[in-house]
Amino acid sequence: MSCCGWCGTVVTPPISVSRLLTFDTHPDKLCTLCRNKMIVLSSCKRCSECCRIVQEITVCSDCLMWRSLYPKLSSGHTALYAYNERAKDIMTAFKLKGDCELAYLFSDDIRRALKIFPANTCFVPVPSAEESLSIRGFNPVELLLEAAGVNYDKALTASRDTGRQAKKNRKERLRTRQPFTLCPKRSKAIADKPVVIVDDVYTTGRTLYHALEAISPCQPSSLQTFSLFR
């Protein structure tokens, strides 16, 4: 017997032979109801580049814009879930209220998703701005990775405070200036390795493209991005 990590409903997972044989003591952390509220992007019609849900499988207009802006940085983006109302509620509780324990809600999903990348991949979390770090006390992306048991490389630092992204509208977000700088000590460790930049939510793509731009000078062998929500 365990409780749903989000709504607290007591769930009794069904006993199956495979679970008994593998001693799998960590069944789904969400109850069926909450699980049904999460939209798995890999089962949706989505933009082949940024995983946004679209009517027809093509490259969405946003990604075409990014391609023209950053012709060399065209990356593949992987996202797990749609950023719907439920996902927003979870992120509010996690980031704004500061309920760090929620990082474990998706630890299994993240671990599974990041296993696909080669073993020598460097996972680089998007850094928090100094201001939000002093209010929250933690970097949500780093916590998500720690909970998933993934080693990460803090190759980026937030050098300039550009204000909270969540408080801006789309236009203001897109106009944000480059906030990240490459950490010189780390740049050698990354060179010639595949790099995946990890963020919690992909909204406009602005943050992740800034991160890509900042990390590209150290010439990783491949460059991709990953986010929990899109």
Partner: peptide
Amino acid sequence: YPCICKQHCYYCRECIQ
């Protein structure tokens, strides 16, 4: 968890609201 005091601290989940 990492905390505003730069250390790792416990916090209360029950009354976080």
